[in-house]
């Protein structure tokens, strides 16, 4: 017996399983990052001194990364739109582009981390650096997870297009929703860590 509503929507909820699943997952992610943000606020309010982000971190580098991540949000939604319009080749191209943008983001992040370590700025140095490394590190892991997903859908996962195109398109949409969330977290991390 097949599991119902993997592709088509259940009439009374109007949703397929994966769509509901990803939003529930994101609800839990909200609580994860929410807890870290609330820890950040608590620690900052209670700190005697708290540095301005741009005194320690490089705003231009992070601004560049913001643009990279926003662009990757656009490419992933273009991948979905291309598939919706029936073009696998364009869809795959956009998926690859998203993956590459994710990679660029991670490389820039690696450069930033490396630079900090070389100037002796380790997480153990101050609470600001501690929370900076924790938040961006956890966010980076989410980016990495998304990249793995896109690499899979660009490569072996795309075979599904030939047997179940609608199912494959849904998967890209769901992966995209996750990716936008990762982008969304960065939209908050950027001002909170670098600008304030």
């Amino acid at each position: 017996m097949q599991i119902p509503f993997t592709v088509e929507a259940r009439p009374d909820t109007g949703l397929n399983n994966a769509k509901l699943g990803i939003w529930l997952f994101l609800a839990s992610e909200v609580m994860l990052f929410g807890a870290l943000f609330s820890s950040y606020i608590l620690l900052r309010v209670n700190a005697d001194v708290w540095p301005k982000g741009h005194e320690i971190l490089s705003v231009p580098v992070a601004a560049f990364n913001t643009v990279v991540l926003i662009s990757s949000s656009v490419t992933v939604i273009m991948a979905w739109a291309s598939l919706k319009m029936g073009s696998l080749s364009k869809g795959r191209m956009y998926l690859l582009l998203t993956f590459v943008l994710g990679l660029v983001f991670m490389c820039v992040k690696a450069y930033e981390y490396n630079h900090k370590f070389h100037t002796g700025l380790f997480p153990s140095e101050s609470t600001f650096l501690a929370i900076y490394f924790t938040l961006t590190g956890l966010h980076g892991l989410h980016v990495l997870g998304g990249m793995i997903v896109f690499a899979y859908f660009w490569g072996p996962g795309s075979k599904m297009w030939h047997s179940e195109p609608e199912h494959f398109t849904n998967r890209i949409e769901v992966a995209g929703v996750y990716w936008h969330f990762v982008d969304l977290v960065w939209i908050f991390l950027f001002p909170v860590l670098y600008l304030l």
């Binding site: 109007g14 949703l15 509901l20 839990s28 609580m31 807890a35």
Partner: peptide
Amino acid sequence: KKLIYYTLILAAIFFVGLMFLP
């Protein structure tokens, strides 16, 4: 769909709970 909104409203309520912590 409405169901997604409900889920997010629920998460938002508990998020506010978390922010109550600091």
